[in-house]
Write a protein that binds this DNA or RNA. Structure first.
Lengths: 250, 250
DNA sequence: CGCCGATTTGAAATTTATCAAAGTTTGTGG
DNA sequence: CCACAAACTTTGATAAATTTCAAATCGGCG
């Protein structure tokens, strides 16, 4: 095993927000984003810790906060009356979560801590006020919103039109890409604290079937996932399987 | 048939942007949105017409425009190497489309005219400039982005965790809700210029299977869809099937 | 040690896709 | 206005994929 599975991967950082490759439409957002970081940090009222499995935001409750995820992973999900769950997206350290309630109350579904997490709590009214006075911040948040939408759209494509094996390949490639923005070494092997059951609920599969899919990927020598650790053994094969193009992530 | 299928349903209007029910967080966005309309209209450089089936935006091409959909329907979609297509969302008159390329080049996938459409073309650089100087406009666009994300998230839930019958029910209820924002009479019966094949590609089904699903819904006396016309015969039954809650649409 | 959650495997049942073909509608050119 | 072609809808039969149900294993943890 090329990496130590016990290394502290969930340390504090701001990867998604602070680091970005140069873009077609250059400097503009980089400026916004770097400036933004300070603004957002200033808006953090206090640090909070949520235990594994606890809800940050629940549909019913009228939460008034957004969160800057500092360590650990969380996910947003929907619970259906038929007893199933669809996970919309997983969030990794650096992600800003719960911002949709900024403008649309009640519409961020559920947010749940997948591991123990540390977050910076941001009062939504202060954030609103900051947005109104700081145009650069507004652009940065807009950029985040577009990016989130692009990610969710890809998940829809995944679930709607890719076969389970290709879908799983796409999922792990996307995660690797997202993590590697802040930690380039995480592109082909990374710690992943998710259970098979959680991922299955993100991919629209049963846990049993997803387990078989993983075996298939292992037998193809494409990748492995065990003990909370993902290894993308054959990146090219995976990219081909997944029909993956990371441009939507930047 | 209670409605004339030949009535001009695709007339010019701005439903999605101009008309909105009151929200939990009141006046704020209404202000923004109504003010915004004028600003957006002012940004429209010229009116363009696209023929049915033509692409407004194609992945490869570096388009520099967003569009205000004035009449007709369009859709955003992804084409996969395996020959399938996933439709991400359909757009109805009043929708602002192609805005994601505002900040993320290359990431609006494909946009295609489902019917003959008339659009107001908005130069993306002018829109950017307007956003920078007009904070209210920025907030309105942010609101639109959040709403779009909520809609796509629901589609993901649909495709990932609802059975085809419930999925179809949800689809038609959502469309009805979206249309009824501007045209209250369209909530339970509306013109719908989509083919079964298009809807199947939005729902992650084959056209053949979706056709059987439609038959099932018809036999349930829940709804019918033929000749480009949708009738939601038993709204309660549909809502129950779909586990539908329109709050994400407002 | 025993329990609990997560993973793994097998077998059967169900759902959904695929293939094929017949109707039907729609649009176009003569 | 008709004839024809193309696209869309509908149905049946069959094949394939996926879920469901059941049970065994594994590992961590009190």
């Amino acid at each position: 095993m090329p990496h130590d599975p016990f290394s502290p991967a969930h340390q504090f950082n701001h990867c998604s927000l602070s680091t970005n490759k140069s873009m077609g439409r250059p400097a503009l957002h980089m400026d916004c984003l770097t400036k933004t970081m300070g603004v957002l940090d200033a808006l953090v009222m206090r640090k909070r810790v949520f235990t594994k499995g606890s809800d940050l935001i629940h549909e019913d409750q009228q939460g008034q906060n957004a969160y800057l995820l500092q360590s650990g992973w969380s996910c947003s999900y929907a619970l259906l009356r038929n007893g199933t769950r669809q996970i919309i997206n997983f969030h990794v350290p650096g992600d800003l979560i719960g911002i949709r309630r900024l403008l649309i109350p009640d519409v961020d579904g559920n947010l749940c801590a997948v591991t123990r997490i540390e977050v910076g709590e941001i009062d939504i009214e202060s954030l609103l006020a900051a947005l109104r006075s700081n145009n650069c911040l507004a652009m940065a948040i807009l950029w985040l919103a577009f990016r989130d939408e692009a990610i969710v759209s890809q998940h829809l494509v995944d679930v709607g039109r890719r076969r389970p094996v290709n879908r799983a390949a796409h999922f792990f490639l996307e995660l690797g890409s997202r993590l590697s923005i802040a930690h380039p070494d995480m592109k082909t092997a990374y710690e992943c604290p998710l259970t098979q059951s959680l991922i299955a609920d993100a991919l629209g599969l049963t846990a049993v079937h997803f387990n078989r899919v993983l075996r298939h990927l292992r037998e193809l020598n494409a990748m492995t996932f065990h003990d909370g650790w993902v290894e993308l053994l054959d990146f090219d094969k995976l990219e081909h399987l997944a029909d993956f193009d990371a441009s939507y992530l930047q």
